[in-house]
Computed example of a mutant assay.
Amino acid sequence: MARPALRVGLTGGIGSGKSTVSRLLTEHGAVVIDYDLLAREVVEPGAPALAQIAERFGAGVIAADGTLDRPALGAVVFSEESARRDLEAITHPAIRDLAVRREAEAGDRVVVHDNPLLIEMGGHTACDVVVVVDVPVEVQVERLVRDRGMTEQEAHARIATQASRDDRAAVADVVVDNSGSVDELTARVGDVWRELAAR
């Protein structure tokens, strides 16, 4: 099994612009493993994790077509800490296993693990470099209200379920400040890519 040329962990709080950084790194030539996509894949109909979720949370979180009813599940897990932990205990191991398979398929390339929960899942410990996309909390809230239709209360609640800025900063090898313009972010990611490619 070929090991990647470099294993990069990419994370950032919701609304930080991490997905934009991920896309830019792909354009530079990185192989990106998107954990949001993995999280959807492991709960597709027929997947063991979906059956475990139904057993733990009840039939009310399964839609009529047999898929996961994400809003129904979200209403439970984002309001109850123990429920969120139970969900993570089901999904995180399945996501980690799938990520290992995706990385093996990438071969000797720079592989970016694009994971909003990189720290919460302990994934940063397996990375050569951790890149954190950072913005102030008030910018996160403003973007979530504007772009995702959340109320300020909903935005703060979602942010509170993730690692804090201090937690992310503590494990960061590279911090990408995304409180400026798109052009500034594009230039910064170009610099980061050159740093990564030079390792």
Rank of each mutant, 00 (worst) to 15 (best):
R40K: 11
E27T: 11
P45G: 04
A63Y: 07
S16F: 04
A106G: 03
A94E: 02
D108P: 14
G60Y: 15
H28G: 15
A83H: 01
V100F: 15
L50T: 02
G66S: 12
D86W: 03
P45C: 11
V76F: 11
G58Y: 12
L38Q: 02
E41K: 08
V32N: 02
D86Q: 13
R56K: 14
D69H: 08
A39D: 05
R84C: 03
E27I: 13
D108T: 06
R84M: 15
R85H: 08
G46H: 07
I33Y: 00
P48E: 08
Y35M: 08
G17L: 06
T20D: 07
F78K: 07
P45Y: 03
I95G: 00
E80P: 08
G60W: 13
K18M: 08
L68M: 10
H92N: 02
A49V: 10
P48T: 04
E80L: 08
V76A: 09
I33P: 00
L73C: 15
F57N: 01
S79M: 10
E80W: 08
G66Q: 07
L68W: 00
I90F: 01
I62M: 07
L73P: 13
V61M: 14
P93S: 09
A49G: 04
R56Q: 09
D34N: 06
A75L: 13
G58V: 15
S82I: 05
G74H: 04
P71N: 07
A39I: 04
A51K: 07
F78S: 10
D36E: 13
G74Q: 03
A59H: 15
A94F: 02
V61Q: 00
P48K: 10
V77K: 14
I53N: 02
A75K: 12
H92K: 02
G60E: 14
T20V: 13
D86P: 10
V21Y: 01
L68Y: 00
A54R: 14
S16C: 07
L38V: 08
E27L: 05
P48V: 09
I53C: 03
G17Q: 07
P71Q: 13
D86Y: 03
V32H: 06
E27F: 09
A39Q: 06
A59D: 10
V76P: 06
P45Q: 05
V21H: 01
E105P: 01
S79T: 06
R23Y: 08
R23G: 10
R96F: 11
R23V: 10
A47W: 09
S19Q: 05
E55W: 02
L98N: 05
E44P: 12
E103A: 11
I53V: 11
A51D: 15
A75M: 04
